[in-house]
Design a protein around this nucleic acid. Structure first.
Lengths: 244, 244
DNA sequence: GCTTGACCCTGCCCCTGGGTCAAGCTTCGA
DNA sequence: TCGAAGCTTGACCCAGGGGCAGGGTCAAGC
């Protein structure tokens, strides 16, 4: 006959766990010896190892309790189910591992794949990290408000980026962020932008999304995301569609 | 700006979890609107997805809190560590899955491999399941008391099973369990057993282990594990070494 | 203007699967 | 014979939330 410590060592379980199983009714309380110590049989060891194996597989104790006195067929069925569950957990762990590796490596985790691709395009174009971050945050807000609308907008915008003049304007606006508000290039840039806007009517019903000013709009909620040069640019463009 | 429900939906997390992260200091409490609702920014969504990813990998919340404002090098190191941890958990899950499959398939899980082999030998010999179970339980008790001694005994016993006369005696004792106590074969079996015991002095210091009577000894703790025929057999063998 | 349903707020207790500590008894080995 | 190790019960603690209570808010439809 075994003491609780011997049983625990044999089954590879802590003493505390055994008492826990007693409390939950998984393992019957054995008889006590004259001093009140619990005394276990070999059958208890067999049961305990079953419990440990099932618990190690993540089966809840309440379910283990049922399985222990289920008929062999039910047990076999349950084991099959648990087995599939383990497989699923393994694949989920592998997914998690992949996601972890993406934590160091861009925005893939935070936005839809389409937006992530778009952000990568921006980076390849030489857009500043600041602008990329502002775009990312804007797209997150849009995706939250309406994932379908964001999906169609992002498609439209990626198409737009194929236009060299638009790309040029985008990069110029990005660069202008750091210019002095008295920079002589600002009026010309404002003119070019206005011209582009009038010759390229937006197809989407939400105009600001389609031009670089979206960055300023999205940025309004973030302190310090605008600049003196951009403020002047906005004034120069006057009542352009972007300012509404 | 997002409500807590929108943020939760975007990040794939429950509202309750977000509030929990606020309590734990993982995610800063955002400003409230006029009605006291929390209002979130896109940056909160980015942080929350980081939290979710790390938490999904099993990283404790307290550690996530540290990692969120750690420098990139420390984060990369931590991610490497977490990655190894996930690998380990995957292999452990695979081991668990193997053990699970053994739950339906014998005694492999409950005793040492040597004892499991021995029990399989017994089954192949045609020994009754009752006797196998009694042997298994006896070996569990022995292994718990002294794994090394049990290891040498099991080796000795498997050697012994190579002796045809011993095998024969073992099977006869097993079969005798179900005989009538008046069965005329019992005196002859008692004689054969006594003869074998005198011509085969035990090498181990613990004699009962080396002969079939171990089954009876181990069974004494289990009610109903003996039988009328066995009782008579014990009386017939008189003061044999097995009866002590 | 009123209702209805969805959403949000705080605060509390509950769960699993144990770990840890305390205070006192028993058993074992030298 | 004495100290170390082992056993007893009981109470409290942890993560990571879930669920419920009891209430406030908001937007739409009638």
């Amino acid at each position: 006959m075994l003491t609780i410590g011997q049983l625990a060592a044999y089954a590879g379980v802590t003493i505390k766990a055994i008492r826990h199983y007693h409390e939950r009714g998984l393992l019957a309380e054995p008889d006590r010896d004259s001093s009140g110590y619990r005394r276990y049989s070999a059958g208890d060891a067999v049961t305990l190892i079953k419990i440990r194996t099932l618990a190690g597989a993540g089966v809840p104790l309440a379910r283990i309790k049922d399985l222990l006195d289920a008929d062999p067929d039910a047990l076999a069925a349950a084991i099959g189910e648990i087995d599939r569950d383990i497989d699923e957990r393994i694949t989920r762990l592998q997914v998690t591992r992949d996601q972890l590796s993406q934590l160091r490596g861009g925005d893939w985790l935070f936005v839809s794949p389409q937006v992530a691709d778009y952000l990568d395009d921006l980076r390849n174009l030489g857009v500043s990290e600041r602008a990329v971050r502002v775009e990312r945050d804007g797209w997150i807000l849009m995706q939250t408000a309406s994932p379908e609308a964001a999906a169609s907008w992002i498609a439209e915008k990626r198409e737009l980026m194929a236009d060299p003049e638009f790309r040029d304007l985008y990069l110029a606006h990005d660069a202008a962020y750091d210019w002095s508000p008295e920079d002589p290039r600002l009026p010309g840039l404002a003119d070019r932008t206005r011209t582009w806007l009038t010759t390229h009517p937006s197809r989407s019903e939400c105009e600001p999304v389609d031009n670089p000013a979206i960055a300023r709009l999205a940025a309004q909620s973030q302190p310090g995301a605008s600049s003196p040069a951009w403020e002047r640019l906005a004034r120069l463009m006057g009542a352009s569609p972007a300012s509404g």
